[in-house]
Amino acid sequence: MEYHLNFNFVWKYADKLWWGLALSIQLAFVAILIGCVIGLALALAHSGGNRWTRGAVATYVEFIRNVPLLLLIYLVFYGIPSAGGFAYDATFSFVVTLSLYSGAYLVEVFRAGLDAVPKGVIDAGKAIGLTPWQRFVHVRLPIMLRVVLPSLSNAFISLFKDTSLASVIAVPELTYGANWIKTNTFRHIEVWLVVWPIYLAAGWAILAALRQLERRFRLGGDR
């Protein structure tokens, strides 16, 4: 059987794809912001904490990192409300899941970043009389953020791709838009031939922009 590709639908439903892409990027953005807050807080709790806080942080990180994101999405969207006798918006539930997920990954990133701040530079901060809080705000934090910036870029791209999983709970992001068009036009092949390059192009464009940003904040050479 001869199959003829037909891309007419793309123009008809372009807004579904466009708004889907916009939502995907927003979801990834919110998730990495909240993930950074979680990750940094837990990295600090881990480095300064006692055995119990360390154990709690490790449990959270290990659990999230060893369970499929898809399962976590279902668990948060269907599992938890069913036990608590409430319901929430799919988008909200997905943001919660993706934030917890990215938080678990970013703990490790921030921990490595904090460790990468040279001890001598912190000593220099002490030597000019900075208080511990000032040393954190003006020395450790800004250096650490510059060190982890490339990892944050990679994490963001990774989260952007992960947003495609939100389609399974009907969050209207890009993959959901694709599925929707597919079921309404039966143009299975064409839909994926369009959506795949959209993900690629968007991901590369975002990455190029982030690398530009990294260049601006790069710490000087011989270190």
């Binding site: 791709k161 993959t175 795949w196 993900y199 991901g203």
Partner: peptide, 11 residues
């Protein structure tokens, strides 16, 4: 590596 796994599987 730039493709979401889900999109790749469907494609």
């Amino acid at each position: 590596r730039g493709t979401p796994l889900l999109v790749l599987i469907f494609s």
